[in-house]
């Protein structure tokens, strides 16, 4: 049996126990919202709003679209682009993350993906190829004078490390504006709940096994807040027994060594959980030690 290809018209609404479950496909990933209600029409309205917000953010910040804000920034290059308030706040957030992470969280590191193709193969790029790209990486090289961003020639930004998590937080806010019901918004494993289910019961979330698709590595209870996972279930290179994760160190241009295969973070917002997960992966071998020292609720799979 083969699953039907997902299309824009893929939105489905189903009854799951005490919830209505609306699923659709956006941002290259399965998305869902679960609403604890018996009102199907209300659940569908919420589902439509959540999907609309996901598509709005995908269109606005996708680096694959020349007409997105990111596409236009990258195309404008040194000519610069004055951005709107929302984009400005995302860029400002990215700058602060760069500072807080000693330069490890860098939205300009996307150009390295011209050399790295994490397809599970053993094809590593040549060392010279990476040295050629490194001058095009580094947030301090861009000119960010809010609301205007100018990129040196050849450089690009990529908000992929923020946009999906931001979309979860945004979509949940939109949904709660329609009805303040217990709900869970999940875009490809990055998720946030509105609060506990009725009766104070927590939401339970399965962490997918990195070994086999569909397998479950554990269950988490979530009463409030968000979860985000950074991992390389399918995105990695394997050569001579060394596994190269898709998390690239922007300073060396090479994948981070000895990173956990997956890090799941619990935090108040999905954006915070996502940044923290990325940062933990960038710590490589010391990911668990970092999370423990910072007192962060986290689940690592090695």
């Amino acid at each position: 049996m083969q699953a039907a290809p997902e299309t824009e018209a893929s939105r489905r609404i189903t009854r799951l126990g005490p919830d209505y479950h609306v699923s659709f496909h956006a941002m290259a990933t399965p998305c869902e919202v679960r609403v604890e209600t018996s009102d199907a029409a209300l659940a569908e309205r919420i589902g439509i709003a959540v999907e609309a917000e996901a598509r709005r953010i995908e269109l606005k910040f996708s680096r694959y679209r020349v007409d997105s804000v990111v596409g236009r920034i990258n195309a404008a290059g040194h000519l610069g682009l004055v951005v709107d308030e929302e984009t400005s706040s995302l860029l400002e957030c990215a700058r602060q993350c760069f500072d807080a992470s000693d330069g490890m969280f860098d939205i300009t590191s996307g150009v390295l993906r011209r050399a790295w193709h994490f397809d599970g193969s053993d094809r590593l790029p040549g060392a010279q190829r990476i040295l050629d790209l490194l001058p095009l990486v580094g947030w301090p090289k861009v000119s960010w004078k809010p609301p205007e961003l100018k990129l040196p020639p050849g450089m690009e930004i990529d908000l992929g490390g923020l946009a999906k998590e931001y979309a979860v937080d945004r979509a949940l806010a939109e949904a709660l504006a329609i009805a303040p019901l217990p709900m869970l918004v999940n875009f490809g494993g990055d998720l946030r709940v509105s609060g506990p289910r009725s009766g104070g019961i927590p939401w339970n979330v399965a962490i997918e096994s990195v070994e086999k698709s569909g397998g479950m590595a554990g269950m988490l209870e979530l009463r409030e807040g968000a979860l985000a996972t950074s991992g390389d279930a399918r995105r990695f290179l394997l050569r001579d027994g060394v596994r190269y994760s898709h998390i690239l160190n922007p300073r060396t241009g090479w994948p981070v060594k000895d990173a956990p295969r997956s890090v799941t973070i619990a935090a108040y917002s999905c954006v915070e959980a996502g940044i923290t997960a990325t940062l933990a992966m960038l710590k490589g071998r010391r990911a668990e030690a970092f999370l423990k020292r910072e007192g962060i609720r986290a689940w690592c799979i090695r």
Binding site: E86, S89, E92, E272
Partner: peptide
């Protein structure tokens, strides 16, 4: 990180 995220989301 909590402060940065809250800053972003507070605006939005």
């Amino acid at each position: 990180l909590a402060r940065i995220s809250a800053g972003l989301l507070a605006a939005a």
